[in-house]
Design a protein around this nucleic acid. Structure first.
Ligand code: MN
Ligand code: MN
Ligand code: ZN
Ligand code: ZN
Lengths: 136, 136
DNA sequence: CTGCTATAATAGAATTATTCTAAATTAGTA
DNA sequence: TACTAATTTAGAATAATTCTATTATAGCAG
């Protein structure tokens, strides 16, 4: 937590109480929350908070490379404070998104005809399935 | 094209002129159009068409496994009439989505702790980068 | 400390993507 | 040819996100 605060010191990023609350919620969070999830959590400590604050903060964090946007769910965006390269799996029944920690990098070579046309900046693998809970 | 028409014969899927126009547009289309792209194309032949027709048809095709939804773009859904397993790369500048035909299936093994909790139904790899045109 | 200013918070309007509704139309078939 | 279930349509509704204008404040300079 102290880490986080120091990370943003003197970067033109103001550490407001609202932002601290969001940062605390996101710190080590592996639930891949949506903007609404963050908003709900934030309302507990800041009942009068605005949705715009959530989007503003999310955007500021994204711009600073401290938060990544997950595209696995066709319905809505999820966010992930873990910016290390990793992958995800979503249960198509309950929509929960879980982490997949595996290094596929050496296998994910692009075919010649694509690699010659793109300066590649990254990749991720999305898996889909049904989780144990949803089968019982 | 004849193929397409036969594919839907007698399945409770009515081949209306609007749908035929959409099917013709999608047939062999590798541009990964959004709903709006389909709508614009459809308006050329059917100027009074409604957006709901596009979404209805897209949904009907998706339900029949004839169209897949692409999640690579955080801004909007793209659609792909190629339902064979393959992957994609998006230019983060111009947002164009291109195909990546490569078989990574053998490499994409899930870690034990995930595979034991999920009945996996599929996966795809999303690549990001800047295309040649956007660099010049 | 105090005051300044750039940055952020807020409410609410606006925009965009998508879904829903209810009435009119029509493809496919009996 | 006539019927009916499926489809089209316009427009309203919903949901996610962005924008705008005003007010408040974090962090810094003096
Ligand atoms: Mn994650
Ligand atoms: Mn494709
Ligand atoms: Zn589940
Ligand atoms: Zn490009």
């Amino acid at each position: 937590m102290m880490e986080i605060i120091n990370k943003f010191k003197g970067k033109g990023f103001k550490l407001t109480p609202q932002r601290l609350s969001i940062l605390k919620f996101l710190d080590g969070n592996t639930s891949h929350p949506t903007a609404e999830d963050i908003f709900k959590a934030l309302k507990k400590t800041h009942p009068t908070v605005s949705f715009a604050t959530v989007y503003n903060t999310v955007q500021a964090l994204r711009d600073r490379g401290e938060l990544q946007e997950i595209t696995i769910d066709p319905e809505k965006k999820h966010f992930d404070p873990n910016t290390a390269p990793h992958h995800h799996i979503m249960c198509t029944a309950c929509k929960r998104v879980e982490d997949v920690f595996a290094d596929y990098s050496s296998a994910l070579q692009l075919p010649e005809n694509v690699s010659k046309n793109f300066a590649v900046s990254g990749n991720h693998v999305d898996f889909y399935g049904i989780c144990k809970k949803c089968r019982s």
